[in-house]
């Protein structure tokens, strides 16, 4: 008995919604990053599910690229947080308003 692909897509939507709610409500910069990783992973799950449905590899290859881009994003973002922490002594995004008008 095979699981229908729509179940995977519903799970992906649930994970994405949880991640987006977290990214919008958390104050800690690192927690926001974790939520973004969760959203990226939910997108990956949807891509793999569609690759399975259509029987093609393209979705899997796109997931590979998304993972590489996520790794690059995490490295740059965490380095930026370290740089901000040196200046500000906090990574609370409510207190980092350097670029606010």
């Amino acid at each position: 008995m095979s699981v229908p692909v729509s179940w995977y897509l519903v799970l992906s939507a649930v994970l994405f919604a949880i991640g987006s709610a977290g990214a919008l409500t958390r104050r800690n910069g690192i927690s926001i990053f974790l939520s973004i990783e969760l959203m990226l992973n939910a997108g990956n799950l949807a891509l793999i599910a569609y690759a399975r449905q259509w029987g093609q590899h393209t979705g899997q290859i796109i997931v590979f690229f998304v993972m590489a881009v996520a790794a690059a994003e995490a490295a740059i973002g965490l380095a930026l947080f370290i740089a901000v922490y040196r200046q500000r002594r906090t990574i609370d995004v409510n207190r980092i308003n350097l670029m606010r008008w």
């Binding site: 699981v3 995977y8 799970l11 990783e37 992973n41 990956n44 799950l45 793999i48 599910a49 690759a51 399975r52 899997q60 997931v63 590979f64 993972m67 590489a68 996520a70 790794a71």
Partner: peptide, 19 residues
């Protein structure tokens, strides 16, 4: 695990290794 279930064992392994 779900990736493996969906027939993408390589991506599942990459997920564990990279993430």
């Amino acid at each position: 695990v779900l990736f493996v279930l969906l027939g993408a064992p390589f991506i599942g392994a990459l997920q564990i290794l990279i993430y």
